Amino acid sequence: KELVLVLYDYQEKSPREVTVKKGDILTLLNSTNKDWWKVEVDDRQGFIPAAYLKKL
């Protein structure tokens, strides 16, 4: 499984997104879309802008 580091706080703006904090380490589920990556946060799955994440 691939992990990503959150570079900036992000507040979800729709039900398909998730809220994260800078410094969080998340499981990356899908990065095929270059703009929005799907991650897992506390048993929730959702999207975050790829620019907010860095692969570890």
Rank of each mutant, 00 (worst) to 15 (best):
T27P: 15
Q11Y: 15
W36Q: 03
L56M: 09
E40I: 11
P49A: 03
D43H: 14
D42V: 12
L28M: 04
L7I: 08
L26M: 04
L5D: 01
L29V: 13
L53I: 07
L56G: 03
L3T: 08
D9W: 03
L29S: 03
A51D: 11
V6T: 03
K54L: 14
D35W: 15
P49D: 02
Y52C: 08
V20N: 00
W37E: 01
T32G: 11
R16P: 06
L26A: 09
W37C: 03
G23S: 03
V4G: 05
D24T: 13
I25F: 05
D43P: 03
A50D: 02
G46D: 02
D42W: 10
L28H: 01
L5K: 07
K54V: 14
K34T: 11
E12D: 05
D24L: 08
L28F: 03
V20F: 03
L26P: 01
V6W: 00
P15L: 09
R44I: 08
L7K: 06
E17I: 03
V39Y: 00
E2K: 09
A50T: 07
G23L: 02
K34H: 14
K34L: 11
L7H: 02
S14F: 07
K34A: 15
V4W: 06
L29M: 07
D42F: 12
K22N: 05
L29E: 03
K13H: 09
K22G: 07
Q45V: 14
K21L: 07
T27R: 15
V18I: 13
N33I: 06
K55Q: 08
Y10E: 00
R16N: 13
V6I: 04
Y8P: 00
P49G: 02
L5E: 12
L29I: 13
Y10N: 01
E12F: 11
K55G: 04
V20H: 02
D35Y: 14
V20E: 00
R16A: 12
L7Y: 02
L26W: 06
K1D: 08
G46K: 04
P15V: 09
T19M: 04
K54W: 10
D24Y: 08
L28R: 01
A50S: 13
V6F: 01
V4M: 03
D42M: 12
D9V: 02
D35V: 14
V41E: 02
G23I: 00
V20P: 00
E12Q: 13
Y10V: 01
K54H: 12
W36R: 04
L3Y: 14
S14E: 09
L3Q: 13
R44T: 06
V4C: 09
W36I: 04
I48Y: 01
D9Q: 04
S14W: 07
L3H: 09
E12T: 09
K22S: 09
V18K: 02
Y8D: 09
D9Y: 04
L29R: 03
F47E: 05
R44Q: 07
V18C: 07
Y52V: 14
V20I: 05
N33M: 09
G23W: 06
T27C: 09
I25A: 02
S31I: 06
E12R: 12
F47P: 00
G23P: 00
K1G: 10
Y52F: 14
E40A: 11
S14N: 13
L28T: 01
T19Q: 04
K38I: 11
L5Y: 10
Y8N: 11
L56A: 05
V20T: 04
K1P: 15
D42H: 13
D35L: 14
S14H: 11
G46T: 07
V18R: 02
D35A: 13
D43C: 10
V6N: 00
D24Q: 14
P49F: 03
P15A: 13
E17R: 05
D43Y: 10
L3P: 04
T32E: 15
I25H: 04
W37G: 01
I48K: 00
K1V: 14
Y52E: 01
T27I: 15
E17G: 11
V6L: 01
Y8H: 15
E17N: 06
K13R: 13
